[in-house]
Structure formats: structure tokens, C-alpha cells
Nucleic acid binder design. Structure first.
Length: 580
RNA sequence: GCUGAUGUAGCUCAGCUGGUAGAGCAACUGAUUCGUAAUCAGUAGGUCACCGGUUCAAUCCCGGUCAUCAGCUCCA
């Protein structure tokens, strides 16, 4: 079945939903009901929200509508007729929508039985063609997506061509949610939270901190190899700094700002750029030095609204693999491509494949949200587009997603709930160099303006870790696993040999644990498997006397007894190559 | 922040629409020394998220706060 066909079914399902709701609750007003990637929804204005019992009733009514097999008929109306029809019914949202349709647009409605909805279509021909659907949830949603508008009630559902596909989808959703990083992250003991500390402030346990440290060391070393210089700058600054950068104008409600006893206003930093610019400004620079690539494993603070916080994905304090490349305008394209290569290498090494590129542009109508310099926006966006096309990237374009100082290339992924998040980002900045008055001396001895590329190579560690947990369902590749090998003894008689192996692996920088408990081997294996340790080493009398270990890989694959030296060589190679 | 759901032992969950709580796992103690997903027995563990109200009596009803989850908004 093609996507279009599924879209039509889902869109028709949303009409069936609206019809059922209108039958049960005639007083409600209908807003919009589109199909989505995963299903469909309908926004409905109702005084009270829909409960789970309401959804059961509505779903039953929908089944009736389907069973009645009503023909779905398209009609075209004049603007006046349409306004009168929906106006008479008190459908104020439909009236608003009609009012905004372009003059020459054909206004169509779709009729099924007693129910008629404003709609461009297309739809299935009979309601019976909506065969397999399910209502999933009821939540609030702002009219036209703006928090300034009234909050409506949204009912989500999904529909498929047949029952089998619907069941398969529901099962897949359920399985995906088993991988939820906040569930697994706590089960595996990677992080925890505490109400006294507050939301959006997760605590990394030794295991979680190990995973983070492994990633940080890898990225720092890799970037240094690629010509980055690491800085270390304060997380606090006087708000004067953010006046220069423009953050205070564009970003203040997202910053933690407070006063000292001496009446100075200070803020926790939401971004690293101003600090690294000040390092740049501490000296005078020649064009011969450029590009300068300042990197930092940077602790950042952003005050998100409480309802926006989620597990490790959106938090108040996070660690960004941040960098700012200060270069001549003529170097931007090459630097951008180098960053692209780095980020693609990072994704490949992490084993993350299900990402896509989003070219995030400004919205010329939102003057207060973006630096007001239309020409620079057009130029920098054209430049980025040229780079993307030259590198043959397929990307989606998104209006109104840029940073306030320039366009971005975002690496997008979906979490287990299907929610889209930005993993990494590369941005071209034409505005801040001017605000900070960054200059370099060109070959004619004149001071000229450099450009800046902002980028996050592995994104923010917390969020990336969340995605890694979900991608691997907690069973990490050996190189990043907090515990890489666990040694289990069969009886206490092997303790000494096991300790020797343990010490030897630790000495070789293998993260290794020892289970000497007086438990049966089956129980120890079970525990180690639940911890998702990549290598389980079982040591009994035979192994201890023959300098061997019995190896289980990824919990299940039994490699049998092998020479310890051989195992160690294999393990070290796997770690060194960062095999996934 | 907004809409809604949820909050019972470290974890997973019971607790019959008001009469001051129960299981399994984990922990601890003892026994068991065992060959690839749970050895047996015992002990201990709770201001039922927190604060207030209604009631003779609240885990249960009402209000507020905090936290978790989903959605909206937002976003690295």
C-alpha cells in the first residue's frame, strides 16, 4: 500500500472520529483533523477534556459509523455558502479557516450521512473502507499551535488498511517503549533523579558517568586530532556579556539570571560562544592563523518550562561538545565540510543510522526572534544550501528553526515515542562576529570580519546517551559499555584465579567486574545478562587449571572455553576498533 | 507554562468505591561450594509522594504542592 492511500484512510478516519464525537457530544466545536505520519488526530473545542471512558464510547460510535457504510461525497461551495453553512452551525473554527483561504481557492466539503466537514480531501468512498483503527490518547493542544490561543482537546488515533497491520503497529509501538531510555536508564543504574534536587537535573551514577566519560574522552581526542584547541571557561558571567551577544534580548526567559550581594546581575551560561570569542579577542589575529577552532566540553544551563523536560533528552543542565570555528568567509565552506565529516564519523562510530538532515532557516516575519539583517540571512542560507547540495545531502527544509544569529544544519532523530529531537547541529553565524567586533588582519593589513561556524559534534552527551540507550536497548557496544566484562566463578575454589584475571584486565584498561558471590552459576549468569554486560567470563575448575575462560558474548552467544590470552587479545582489538 | 494521567517497601505490583497495609524480587543472617537465565530457610524493611481539609475514622473523598509520563508549546 502506498503512503498516499494510507494517508487517505487516516484522514477519513479522522472524519469518522469527528462524526462520532458530534453524535455523542453535539455541543462541541470542531477545529482541524489531519492525518499524521503515525495516524491521525482531531482537535475539538470542548469545555471538559475527554476521559478514557469517553474514548471507549467514541470508538464504539466510530465502529457504528463505519458499519453504516455511509457514502462520502464531495461538494463544492461558494465562499458565501460555506461561511453561512458553518456559521449557522456555530463552527467558529471552520469559519476562521474559510476566511483565510485564498480568494480563488475552491472550497470543498465532504459529506457522510448527517455529518459534513470542511476539507480539501481526498477521502475514501465509503466509511466502510476505514477498516482498522484505534484511538490512542486524548490531550490538550493549542488552537493553531500557539500558546496564546485557547487550548483545545486533541484525540489521537491510528488507522491502517487492515487489522493485521494495525496490530503489528501497536505491537511495535509497545516494543519500542520497552526501550525508553528513562525506564532502561534507571533499571540499568545509569542515572537517577531526586525530587529535592529537582526536575531536569538527573544524577549520573558511576556507570552512567563512565559511559559519559568514555564518550567525552573519545570526542576530545578525536577533535584535537582534527585541529581543534580545547578551552576551559566559566559557567557564570555578568549579564553584560549576554548584552553583547544578544542573548539577553533573544533568550533571557531561557536563562538562569540572578543577583549577587553586590547588586551585580549574573547568569549561568546557555551557550559557550561569548566566552570563546573573548579568548579570541584577547589577542590580535592574522589571516595566517585562521581557521581557529576552539572546542570545549561545555556545561550549559537552559531554563526550559517544566512540561518540556524529559528524561535525559531535555534537561536544565547539560554537557555540550561545543566548538566555534573562526574563519575567513572564504574558508566557511571547507570548514563546514570538515565538520560534516566529523559528525558523520561520530554517527557511524556510535552506530546510529536513523537520522536525517534538517536545513533550518529563519522566518522573515518574526523580527523579534532573529537578528534583523535580511541580506545576511539570504546570503548565509544560500551559502549553506550550496554546501549541502555540493555534498549531495538529502535534507528537509524547516522555516523558523534557525538560531537567532544564523541558519543551521540539524541532525534529527526520533525517540521511542516517535518524537523528533535535534542530535547535533552545525550553524553559520554572520551576526555574532559583528556584535563582538571580532576581527583579523588580512594580507593587506586591514582589519576585517571573520565568520563563525558553531557546531556540536556529538551533541549534548546526556541526550546522545539517551538515544544510545534506546538504540541499543541498553546493550551497548563493548567499547562504550560501562562494564565490558564480568567474571563469574563457579565455586570459591576459583577465586584466586578469577582475581588474577580481573586485575590483569583492569591493568589493560578493560572495565571489568568480579562476581565472587556464593551463588549458583545459573543465577550469576542471569544477573549479568540483566545488566547487559557484553562479555561474561565463566571460570570453573577446568578454566582455572588450564589458563582459560569460558566466554559468553552479548549474554547469549556461547563462545565456549578459550585461552585467556587469546580472549584478551580479541577483546582489546574489539575495544580499540570501537566495533559496534 | 498549558491539557490530562499517574505517585503504596530499593524495584515490579496487590489492596473489594473510607475502619491506620500485603506479595514476588532485591537487601540482611544462616545453611549450601554447585558447570551456563533464579539453591533453601529465616529476618528486617512503609508518616501509603508532601501539606492541608471533610469525617468518630482517610492509602481511599476534596483542595494545594512536588515529582513522573504523554500531548501542546519549546528545543541541544
Amino acid at each position: 500500500m502506498g503512503n498516499n492511500e494510507l494517508e487517505v484512510i487516516r484522514h477519513s478516519a479522522s472524519h469518522v472520529l469527528a462524526q462520532a464525537v458530534k453524535r455523542l457530544y453535539p455541543e462541541v466545536k470542531l477545529a482541524i483533523g489531519p492525518s499524521t505520519e503515525e495516524g491521525f488526530y482531531y482537535d475539538i473545542d470542548r469545555e471538559t477534556s475527554f476521559t478514557e471512558e469517553d474514548l471507549v464510547k467514541i470508538e464504539a460510535e466510530m465502529k457504528k459509523v463505519v458499519k453504516e457504510n455511509l457514502p462520502i461525497k464531495r461538494k463544492e461551495l461558494s465562499r458565501a455558502e460555506a461561511l453561512k453553512y458553518f456559521g449557522d452551525k456555530g463552527e467558529i473554527y471552520k469559519v476562521e479557516l474559510i476566511g483565510e483561504l485564498p480568494e480563488n481557492e475552491i472550497i470543498s466539503v465532504y459529506e457522510q450521512g448527517e455529518f459534513t466537514d470542511l476539507c480539501r480531501g481526498p477521502h475514501v468512498r465509503y466509511t466502510k473502507e476505514v477498516k482498522a483503527f484505534k484511538l490512542l490518547s486524548a490531550t490538550g493542544a493549542y488552537w493553531r499551535g500557539s500558546e496564546k490561543n485557547k487550548m483545545l482537546q486533541r484525540i489521537y488515533g491510528t488507522a491502517f488498511a487492515n487489522k493485521e497491520e494495525l496490530e503489528a503497529h501497536l505491537k511495535q509501538m509497545e516494543e519500542a517503549r520497552q526501550r525508553d531510555h528513562s525506564k532502561l536508564g534507571k533499571e540499568l543504574g545509569l542515572y537517577c533523579t531526586n525530587p529535592a534536587i529537582g526536575k531536569g537535573l538527573p544524577l549520573f551514577t558511576p556507570k552512567g558517568a563512565t559511559l559519559k566519560r568514555v564518550l567525552i574522552r573519545w570526542i576530545e581526542d578525536e577533535e584535537i586530532k582534527r585541529g581543534y584547541q580545547y578551552t576551559s571557561t566559566p559557567v557564570l558571567a555578568k549579564t553584560d556579556l549576554y548584552k553583547i551577544s544578544g542573548h539577553l534580548d533573544h533568550y533571557r526567559d531561557k536563562m538562569f539570571v540572578f543577583n549577587t550581594d553586590e547588586k551585580e546581575e549574573v547568569a549561568l551560561r546557555p551557550m559557550t560562544c561569548p566566552y570563546q570569542f573573548m579568548i579570541y579577542k584577547a589577542d590580535k589575529h592574522s589571516y595566517k592563523e585562521l581557521p581557529i577552532r576552539y572546542a570545549e566540553t561545555s556545561l550549559l544551563f537552559r531554563k526550559e518550562l517544566s512540561g518540556e523536560l524529559h528524561g535525559l533528552i531535555r534537561i536544565w543542565q547539560f554537557t555540550l561538545a561545543d566548538a566555534h570555528i573562526i574563519c575567513m568567509p572564504s574558508q566557511v565552506a571547507e570548514e563546514f565540510e570538515k565538520v560534516l565529516d566529523l559528525v558523520q564519523y561520530v554517527m557511524k562510530t556510535l552506530g546510529l543510522k536513523d537520522y536525517w538532515y534538517r536545513f533550518s532557516k529563519w522566518d522573515p516575519n518574526k523580527k523579534d526572534k532573529y537578528v534583523d539583517n535580511p541580506k545576511a540571512w539570504e546570503d548565509s542560507q544560500a551559502l549553506m544550501k550550496k554546501i549541502l547540495d555540493k555534498n549531495k545531502l538529502t535534507y528537509t527544509e524547516a522555516e523558523d528553526e534557525a538560531a537567532f544569529y544564523g541558519p543551521k544544519l540539524d541532525f534529527q532523530m526520533k525517540n521511542v515515542w516517535g518524537k523528533e529531537e535535534t542530535m547535533f547541529t552545525i550553524q553559520i553565524d554572520f551576526a555574532l562576529p559583528e556584535r563582538f567586533d571580532l576581527t583579523y588582519t588580512d594580507n593587506e593589513g586591514k582589519d576585517v570580519r571573520p565568520m563563525v561556524v558553531h557546531r556540536a559534534s556529538i551533541g549534548c552527551y546526556e541526550r546522545t546517551i539517551a538515544f544510545l540507550i534506546e538504540h541499543y536497548a541498553g546493550a551497548f557496544p563493548t567499547w562504550m559499555s560501562p562494564v565490558q566484562a564480568k567474571i563469574l566463578t563457579i565455586t570459591n575454589n576459583q577465586d584466586e584465579y578469577a582475581k588474577k584475571i580481573h586485575a590483569d584486565l583492569l591493568a589493560a584498561d578493560v572495565r571489568c567486574e568480579l562476581d565472587l558471590r556464593n551463588e549458583k552459576i545459573g543465577g550469576k549468569i542471569r544477573d549479568a545478562r540483566l545488566e547487559k554486560v557484553p562479555y561474561i567470563l565463566i571460570i570453573g575448575e577446568q578454566e582455572a587449571s588450564g589458563n582459560k575462560v569460558a566466554v559468553r558474548r552479548k549474554g547469549a552467544e556461547d563462545l565456549g572455553p578459550m585461552d585467556y590470552a587469546k580472549f584478551k587479545e580479541m577483546l582489546l582489538a574489539e575495544i580499540k576498533e570501537k566495533r559496534i
